[in-house]
């Protein structure tokens, strides 16, 4: 019974990834490509949040700091002349190292205090960057000459596919089980032999690694942006919204959530400008009240 459900999940995932990959072959244009890139970016970022928030139950609102550090480091190393994959991995590891530094003190905080602590980290990072690097990060001319959004989109798609695969593996592993136990009851988890603080740190490192990957792809795709943009707090809150729309603690949920989010944001941002933030606030409240298991929960009911 369980095995059949697993095969179904894999099939859904593979078909949707291939489908997304085929779209640019039939519908040309930068607009579509941009949307598809955002879909991949949000899938990676929300899955990174999902590992920590959905599986391990720790509400991390510092994701923007990890996304931003990933973007900053990747861009820096890439522009310095190293091949992009090297820069991307380096960027992810910089997020992971930051996670170790921040996680060891903050993970001793529980529940809401952890959320507030990590939000503080994100805000500190944002303000620091706004003051330390007030300018715009331009891609140098040497790298501009071979700028090709199609290749960039496919890179993001591959990374997104790998991220989903990684989350799928975590979901079906001993590590995933430990995370879920911690989410359900920390004291019972430690009575079961799970070292709660250690597994929270491992989970945070994994989670931020993927946040760093997403940040790196952001730095790869966009030609120029203010240095502080990848540190903006929306990178903390968007993944929370996406994961809750789709279904927290599931492999497919964040994918559905990211799709809904990208489409809704496009509609609302064009028609209503900044008011779209208000709309998403209302959407979030409605989801939490009426669909606590997200859209994926409708099927399971």
């Amino acid at each position: 019974m369980k095995a059949r459900r697993d095969i179904k999940t894999i099939l859904i995932l593979v078909i949707s990834i291939v489908f997304v990959g085929l779209i640019p072959l039939f519908i040309k244009g930068e607009y579509v490509l941009n949307m598809l890139f955002l879909l991949c970016l949000y899938t990676i970022l929300s899955h990174s949040w999902n590992i920590m928030g959905g599986y391990c139950g720790q509400i991390n609102l510092g994701q923007a700091a990890f996304f931003g550090i990933g973007a900053l480091t990747t861009r820096y190393i890439w522009v310095a002349g190293y091949p992009f994959p090297v820069a991307l991995i380096a960027g992810s590891f910089s997020s992971l190292i930051l996670a170790c530094l921040i996680g060891i003190p903050t993970l001793r905080l529980r529940a809401h205090y952890f959320a507030i602590g990590t939000l503080g980290v994100a805000m500190i990072a944002l303000i620091t960057i706004q003051n330390a690097l007030p300018g715009v990060d331009f891609l140098p001319a040497s790298l501009m000459s071979d700028y090709n959004p199609t290749i960039r989109f496919y890179t993001a798609l591959i990374v997104a596919a790998l991220t989903i695969f990684a989350v799928y593996c975590i979901n079906n592993s001993r590590l995933g089980l430990a995370m879920k136990c911690i989410r359900d009851d920390e004291e019972a988890a430690s009575a079961t032999g799970i070292n709660v603080v250690r597994y929270k740190i491992i989970t945070l490192m994994l989670s931020t690694f993927f946040a760093g990957l997403a940040g790196g792809l952001f730095a790869y795709y966009y030609v120029s942006y203010y240095y502080y943009v990848p540190f903006e707090l929306m990178w903390s809150f968007d993944p929370v919204l996406i994961v809750f729309i789709g279904g927290a603690g599931t492999v497919v949920g964040p994918l559905i959530g990211a799709l809904c989010y990208v489409i809704l944001k496009e509609i609302f941002a064009i028609s209503m400008g900044q008011v779209n933030v208000l709309i998403f606030g209302v959407v979030f409240i409605l989801i939490v009240l009426f669909l606590p298991k997200g859209l994926i929960g409708i099927k399971k009911r």
Binding site: K180, D184, E187, A189, G249
Partner: peptide
């Protein structure tokens, strides 16, 4: 075991 049972309810 715990006086007030503590299973992992979502598992």
């Amino acid at each position: 075991t715990f006086q007030i049972v503590r299973p992992f309810v979502q598992l």
